[in-house]
Design a protein around this nucleic acid. Structure first.
Lengths: 134, 134
DNA sequence: ATTAATTCCTACTAATTTGCTAGGATTAGT
DNA sequence: ACTAATCCTAGCAAATTAGTAGGAATTAAT
């Protein structure tokens, strides 16, 4: 039960964008790659997931790049992680059918644990993460 | 961030042992395999982890098998999962050195999330899981 | 003693997932 | 036109997971 590198890098990227959020600065993938030490090509894929979840907005072409769609204090860490980490689900059977017909004793446990994790992550904003004020 | 099959099967096994805990019944792997639908050979490996964590005790030879070391109400789900799921750690860098010298902004987040997950799982006993009383 | 039933140990393998590389199409500013 | 950027998607290598397999060790029953 590990967080993927996408989750880790997604947070790096978000923090970096949060730092530069003032004055509508538009940030390129290449500068994010420099700041985080991850390759551009890989970051492109990660930030694409964030765009799909409307956490960032992009502008294409020369002078293009990305910026957050909202203030760092209005974006939760849970939202970011769910965007890049395939919904952050600890077991598939919460939303899909499982071999046991979805009524095994564990199901309820997984569901509650999932709720627990999500609610915790939703209470923490990107701003708080940036200030390390958790 | 998924639970492994070992985590899922480990809980099945535990619930089955909890059901048969009354009167010191000793349960064989083969009957656990029948009850859970998992192969004997794979369950052997999983239950070995539980033995190592002193959740079950074994008796060898003919008429041998396994039983819980304590009442189901005294064994937490967290303890079981940590035994079979390699400490249930969401990121390595909480306990190991990471490339960023262990002081990245996310580190504190992971630590707190980890504590959150463990404390939740530790509040739930095998007895509660069995009764689906979470 | 022999046999049968069981745990215990450990090596191997197949399938899946993850992490990343790569190439090029598309878009927009100068 | 040229350049700097996002966008799209295919592929691949490494790691991990999930499971198979064989047989040694142990013990109860006959």
């Amino acid at each position: 039960m590990k967080m993927s590198s996408k989750a880790r890098y997604g947070l790096y990227v978000s923090v970096e964008l949060a730092r530069r959020y003032n004055n509508q600065e538009i940030v390129t993938v290449s500068s994010l790659a420099q700041a985080t030490g991850v390759t551009e090509k890989y970051l492109e894929q990660i930030i694409a997931l964030m765009k799909k979840a409307q956490i960032v907005v992009s502008s294409r072409g020369a002078n293009g790049g990305y910026k957050l769609t909202d203030e760092p204090s209005n974006i939760s860490v849970g939202r970011i992680l769910r965007a890049v980490e395939d919904n952050l689900q600890i077991v598939d059977c919460i939303h899909k059918d499982c071999a046991n017909g979805c009524n095994c004793v564990s199901r309820n446990l997984w569901t509650k644990l999932q709720i627990n994790i999500n609610s915790y992550l939703d209470t923490i904003s990107l701003q708080q993460l940036l200030e390390d004020n958790l």
